[in-house]
C-alpha cells in the first residue's frame, strides 16, 4: 500500500468502520443481555452500511441500514413472543454451543482471509458509473432478474412457512371446520369491522 491510498478519507473510513463492525460482532457474543446483543449486531450492520457509503454505493448503504434496523426491531417483537424472559433485563448467556460456534467462526474467518489475500485480483478497467443506483436497478431488472426473482420467491416462501410453523391458529380455527363462518373467531379483534 502506498501513502496516497492510506491518506484517502474513504479508505480510512472503510478500515475504521470495518474494525467497528468486527468489534461489535464480537461484542454480540460477549455481552450478557438480549438487548445489548441485538443492538451490538445492529451496530455491526450499520458499520457495514457505512463501508458501503464510503464506497459510494448510497442505495445499498441506506437499504442495508433500513432493512437491518427493521430486522432487529422485528427480532425484539419475536423476543416477547417466544422467550421465557421477554424483557431480557436479567443477565443471561447469549451463546449456545460456544465451542462449536467459535470453531465454525474461526475457520470461516481464516478461509475468507486467506482467500482475500491470496487471490490474484484483477486491476480495475473503466470507471465507476456516475449513478450506481441506476446501474444496480438495471442489473436487477435486466441481466440478473431471474436470480433476483428466485431469491425473492425463496425468501417469501421461507417467511410464509416460518409463520405457518409458528402460529398456533390456522384458518380452520378461525373460520370453522368447514370454513363457512362469515366472521373469523379471533381471540382479539382486528381493526376491520368483520
Amino acid at each position: 500500500m502506498n501513502d496516497t491510498l492510506l491518506s484517502d478519507p474513504a479508505v480510512i473510513a472503510v478500515v475504521v468502520l470495518g474494525a467497528v463492525s468486527v468489534g461489535s460482532g464480537i461484542a454480540v457474543f460477549v455481552v450478557d443481555s438480549m438487548a445489548r446483543a441485538t443492538f451490538a449486531l445492529l451496530v455491526s450492520f450499520l458499520a457495514i452500511a457505512g463501508v458501503l457509503l464510503a464506497l459510494d454505493l448510497v442505495y445499498l448503504a441506506v437499504v442495508t441500514a433500513l432493512m437491518m434496523t427493521i430486522e432487529m426491531a422485528i427480532m425484539a417483537v419475536f423476543m416477547i413472543m417466544f422467550m421465557m424472559n421477554p424483557a431480557g433485563l436479567m443477565p443471561m448467556t447469549m451463546v449456545h454451543n460456544g465451542r462449536g460456534s467459535a470453531a465454525v467462526g474461526f475457520v470461516a474467518f481464516v478461509a475468507l482471509t486467506v482467500g482475500i489475500w491470496t487471490t490474484d485480483w484483477p486491476s480495475r478497467r473503466g470507471q465507476p458509473p456516475a449513478d450506481t443506483t441506476r446501474q444496480l436497478g438495471e442489473a436487477i431488472m435486466g441481466s440478473h432478474m431471474l436470480v433476483m426473482l428466485v431469491v425473492g420467491i425463496g425468501l417469501f416462501a421461507t417467511i410464509l412457512s416460518g409463520t405457518i410453523l409458528a402460529t398456533g391458529r390456522g384458518r380452520y380455527d378461525r373460520f370453522g371446520a368447514d370454513l363457512r363462518a362469515t366472521r373469523p373467531d379471533d381471540p382479539t379483534p382486528g381493526g376491520l369491522p368483520r
Binding site: 441500514a65 433500513l66 426491531a73 449513478d131
Partner: peptide, 24 residues
C-alpha cells in the same frame, strides 16, 4: 445522492430501534 428518498426512510426506520430502546 442517487437514493435520497431511501435515505429519508432509513433515518425514520432507525427510529424503530431508538424508540424501542427508550422503552426498554
Amino acid at each position: 445522492t442517487s437514493a435520497d428518498l431511501v435515505w429519508f426512510n432509513a433515518m425514520e426506520a432507525l427510529l424503530w430501534a431508538a424508540v424501542w430502546l427508550i422503552g426498554w
